[in-house]
Design a protein around this nucleic acid. Structure first.
Lengths: 162, 162
DNA sequence: GTGGATGCAAAGTCTTTGCATTGGG
DNA sequence: CCCAATGCAAAGACTTTGCATCCAC
């Protein structure tokens, strides 16, 4: 039923994120930028590198703050403009929830969904190709071309079922 | 595949919505307002009645414009404030997507999911029991007790595929 | 009567845009 | 060199808040 799953360590995320994952190589970052037919600038490289250092969802504010120390003159407009390009080209996914500002994540190389515990907040990622296939069919029947989806399951994790 | 679905006729919305569905009775509307421990006002009744005349997702702007003719003095703040109350109490669901303003719908008596057009914002509701069943199984395999979910499909609607 | 609700306008947030300047190709 | 990209500031879009007045209860 489940194709795969993985438990992220949500607690240590912020502290550890720099060591959790290798940032995108400069070569890879340049490839992405060129693929969009845009000029390679140090600002854009910095934004891509920053986004790639963690499997997280960043607000523009956070991207800006993270880059600012090494880039005192960078402006919000640059971050917004580049994230928009990345989103339009599918390299980044934009998430909007509640009244919060938009958050962005590098489009994952493999797609996954989330199952969250409403009690302790634990998040488990999973993949299920049957559900994906059904979504495709639903969209087709509605006459839509499916480009993406958000599937979040909520419930109680094993530890919180007491 | 799809158990049911319903296409909103976005163009004729304004003209036709009154005939699409019986508006909520005044008794019912008052019951809802009182259940939230709020005072019953004509503005609140008008908003609830307006929301209930169609199974659609309304922007605050639309709610305001529809009510304004019969209520020349009503303000946006009243609409926002009341929708927030309704949302907090679960009588209304808030939807946010893309860069569009929030849209609101009366909380459905039966569960459904959404397929949204990323271009024009059109939202189609659908139900699919196969997907629901699969979600249940995924949760079970992860050891979770499923209590809810959010499934949003994104894509291009027939009109926006050009 | 009295405290919650309203309308108005002003303030707040997040995002986009205009424009002169900079810098990558 | 030239035009895209940037930084800054101003404008825009949506939403919230402050406050005097109003009106359910």
């Amino acid at each position: 039923m489940i194709d795969s799953f993985r438990l992220p360590k949500s607690q240590e995320r912020k502290e550890k994120y720099n060591s959790e994952k290798q940032p995108m190589s400069e070569v890879e970052a340049k490839r992405i930028i060129r693929e969009m037919h845009l000029k390679v600038t140090t600002q854009r490289l910095a934004i891509l590198k920053m986004l790639s250092t963690a499997n997280q969802h960043f607000m523009v504010q956070e991207v800006y703050e993270k880059i600012h120390p090494n880039f005192p003159e960078i402006g919000f407009a640059t971050v917004y403009r580049f994230l928009k390009k990345l989103t339009d080209h599918g390299f980044v996914t934009e998430l909007r929830m509640g009244g919060l500002p938009s958050r962005y994540e590098l489009a994952p190389t493999h797609h996954h969904d989330h199952m969250s515990c409403t009690q302790c907040g634990k998040v488990v990622e999973f993949e299920n190709s049957s559900i994906e296939a059904l979504q495709e069919k639903v969209a087709e029947q509605l006459g839509f071309t499916l480009t993406g989806h958000v599937l979040e399951l909520y419930g109680l994790c094993p530890d919180c079922q007491t």
